[in-house]
Design a protein around this nucleic acid. Structure first.
Lengths: 332, 332
DNA sequence: CTGAAAGCGCTTACAG
DNA sequence: CTGAAAGCGCTTACAG
C-alpha cells in the first residue's frame, strides 16, 4: 500500500529494522551465514523485504560485483521453429546453470545486430552468442576489445569458435532425396531449383555446394537460372517463382521454412501444382509432412549445438574453430 | 590489441585525452552541445572510444539516471507463430520508440514467471508486460509494490489493464464453421471434441463457452467426455485422443497450434483419419491450410493488440479494464 | 568552454 | 554477531 514513487532500498529496510545496510545486504544476497548474522535478524529482514515488495537494484549490485553471470544471445528472428527452439532452450539451460540469459532478435540486419551486441556488452554480459549473424567477425572484434567472450552459432565466423550444422552434407543428402523422389514419383530427372537464402551467408553457400555436388554425381548440369537466391523472406521466394509455371514435372530445394511459406503459396496458385512438383526443405517444421509435394525436411540438431555452445561458455582461450553438427533427414 | 581484463571506462579515456571524466561523459551520452563542449574535443573522444572498443557500463549509467527506458515482457514459449510474432514485434516497436526491450520466456510455469518478473523489476524495467501469464495478478501486485507499471496481454488479470483476443466470439465462430463443414462434407452433425488448453486459464474457459454456445444454438448436447483439457503440450493432446479411434464422422475444436501438433500426429495414425475427421484450430500457422481435415484457423491480431499495449505504456493511472480484440477467421 | 564533487544502491574487506 | 567506510562507473547540478 505504499505510495512513494521511489523504490525500496536496503537503507529503507535497514532504517525500519534498526539494523545496518551491511547486514540487510548480507541477508538479501545469501551471504549471511558466513557473516554469522543471527537467524532472527535474517528472518525479520526477509519478512519486511517481502512485505515491502523489495526488489534488488541489479544495476547497483552488478556495478559493485566482479561477475555479472549474464550470457547474451542475438538471434535473427523468432518466426520459425529453428530459432524459436534455440532461443527457448538457450534461456532454459542458462537458467539451470545459474546464469542470466538475455536474448534479443535482430532481423538479419547488420546494423541492428551490431547495436544489439554493443548494448549487450554494455549490460556487462560475460559472453555473447551470435546466432545466425550476418557479420559475426565484426561482433567478435567488438566483444574481444571489451574483454567479452564471443561464440558463433548457426553461422560461422573466422575469429571466434563457431557451432554450426553440417550444411554441405545435409544439403547433399536432401538433394539426393529430392532427385530420387522426382525420378520415382514423377519419372523425371533434371536440375532442381534452389530457392531462398543469401549468397553472402556461409550456410547458403555450403548448401548450394551440397546441392550442386548431388547433381554432379548424377551428371546433371545446373543452369545458373535455377539458383533463386535473393533473401530469406517468404515474399521473395514467391516473387522469384512468380513467372515459373511448370507444365512438366519439376523439383525444388527450399532453403529454410520461411522460403517454404513462399513456395507453398506459389504452388497453391498453380492449376496442378501438387502433381507436377516435388521439393524438400532445409529446416524442419512440425506440419511439414502434410505439405503436398514435400518429400523431406532436414532437421538441425539444436540440442547438440547448444551442448557445444555451453561447453565453450566461460572457457578461456577458445580457438576459432568450426564445430559441425550433423543434421537429421526427415523423410516423408 | 589491449590485453587488460578490465573494461575501458570514461576515466581511462579522460586520462588518455587529458580531459575530465565529465567532458568525456557528456560527449559519450550526447549532451555535449548543451554543455558547449568543443567539437574538437568531442571528435577526439569519439575517435578514442571507437579505437578502444569502449562500451558504456549500463549498470553505472542506469544507477545514476532517473529513467531506465526499459520495457520488459514475459512470454510463455517461442515455439509457435503467435508468441514468436508477439515477441519479435514487441522488440521491434519498442526499439523504434527509443525504448529498450527485454523479453524472456517462462514456459507457462508460475514460479518461473514470478522469478522472471522479479528479475526484470530488478533490472529497473519501467513497465512489465505479462503475456499469457498463468498468474498475472501476482505479478501485477509485485510490480505495483515496486512502482512498476504492469500490463497483461493475451491472458487477462483483475489488477492491471489487459489486452486480449475476443476468445468467446472467436470460438463461437470457429465452432460454427467446424459444425457447418462436418455437415456439408461428412453429412454428420453432433458434438465436437474440444482439445487442449487449461481450465485455470481464462482463454480456455472463454473459448469453451463459445464452443458450447455454438452447439447450444443448434440444439446439440456436449457430453463432458468430449472436453479434453489437460494442458497445452502436443503430447498431452495426442495422449488424450489415443484411444479414440473413430469409425464414423467426427469433428474437433483444437485449442492452439501446439495441441494441433498432437491432433495431427494422432490423426495420421488412424486408418482413414483424413476422410472421417474435420477440425478447426484457435491460432494460426502458415502451413495450417494443408493439414488434412483442417477447415479453418482463428488468427489473433498481434499488431492491433500491440497498438493497445504501446498506447498504455507510460500512462499513469490506467484502469484495470479488459480490451478485447477481434480475431480473424481463416477459412480453408 | 571545462572540471571537481556528490551521489545513485549496492558489496565487501575490515574492525570491533 | 554487527556496523562504518570505501568504491564500482557513471551523471549532473554547480562553480568557474
Amino acid at each position: 500500500m505504499k505510495k512513494e514513487t521511489k523504490r525500496t532500498t536496503i537503507y529503507d529496510l535497514a532504517t525500519r529494522l534498526g539494523a545496518s545496510p551491511s547486514s540487510v545486504s548480507a541477508v538479501l544476497n545469501g551471504t549471511w551465514k558466513k557473516r554469522r548474522i543471527s537467524a532472527k535478524l535474517a528472518e525479520r529482514v526477509m519478512k519486511l523485504a517481502n512485505e515491502e515488495g523489495y526488489a534488488m537494484n541489479t544495476q547497483a549490485s552488478l556495478l559493485r560485483r566482479e561477475k555479472s553471470n549474464i550470457v547474451a544471445m542475438i538471434v535473427p528472428k523468432y518466426d520459425n521453429r529453428y530459432f524459436g527452439d534455440i532461443a527457448e532452450k538457450f534461456e532454459h539451460r542458462a537458467r539451470e546453470l545459474g546464469l542470466i540469459p538475455i536474448v534479443t532478435c535482430t532481423q538479419r540486419d547488420p546494423e541492428l545486430e551490431f547495436n544489439a551486441a554493443r548494448e549487450l556488452v554494455s549490460y556487462q554480459a560475460e559472453c555473447l552468442i551470435a546466432t545466425g549473424a550476418t557479420d559475426p567477425d565484426r561482433i567478435t572484434d567488438f566483444c574481444h576489445a571489451a574483454g567479452v567472450q564471443a561464440i558463433n552459432m548457426d553461422l560461422p565466423g573466422e575469429k571466434a569458435p563457431s557451432v554450426i550444422s553440417d550444411n554441405f552434407e545435409g544439403a547433399l543428402n536432401l538433394t539426393r532425396l529430392i532427385l530420387d523422389r522426382c525420378q520415382q514419383e514423377l519419372g523425371w530427372e533434371g536440375a532442381l531449383r534452389f530457392v531462398g537464402g543469401r549468397l553472402s551467408d556461409h550456410n547458403t553457400v555450403a548448401r548450394l555446394e551440397g546441392f550442386k555436388a548431388a547433381h554432379q554425381e548424377r551428371g546433371i548440369d545446373v543452369p545458373e537460372s535455377n539458383i533463386l537466391i535473393q533473401g530469406y523472406s517468404a515474399q521473395t521466394a514467391q516473387r522469384l517463382l512468380a513467372d515459373f509455371q511448370p507444365t512438366a514435372p519439376t523439383g525444388l530445394f527450399v532453403n529454410s521454412t520461411i522460403a517454404l511459406e513462399g513456395v507453398v503459396a506459389w504452388q497453391s496458385r498453380l492449376p496442378n501444382g501438387a502433381e507436377l512438383i516435388r521439393y524438400g526443405c532445409f529446416d524442419w517444421d512440425p506440419f511439414g509432412s502434410f505439405l503436398p509435394g514435400n518429400v523431406g525436411m532436414m532437421e538441425q540438431n539444436v540440442d547438440i549445438m547448444l551442448d557445444h555452445v555451453f561447453e565453450l561458455i566461460g572457457k578461456k582461450e577458445t580457438p576459432a574453430e568450426v564445430i559441425k553438427i550433423p543434421c537429421e533427414l526427415r523423410v516423408y
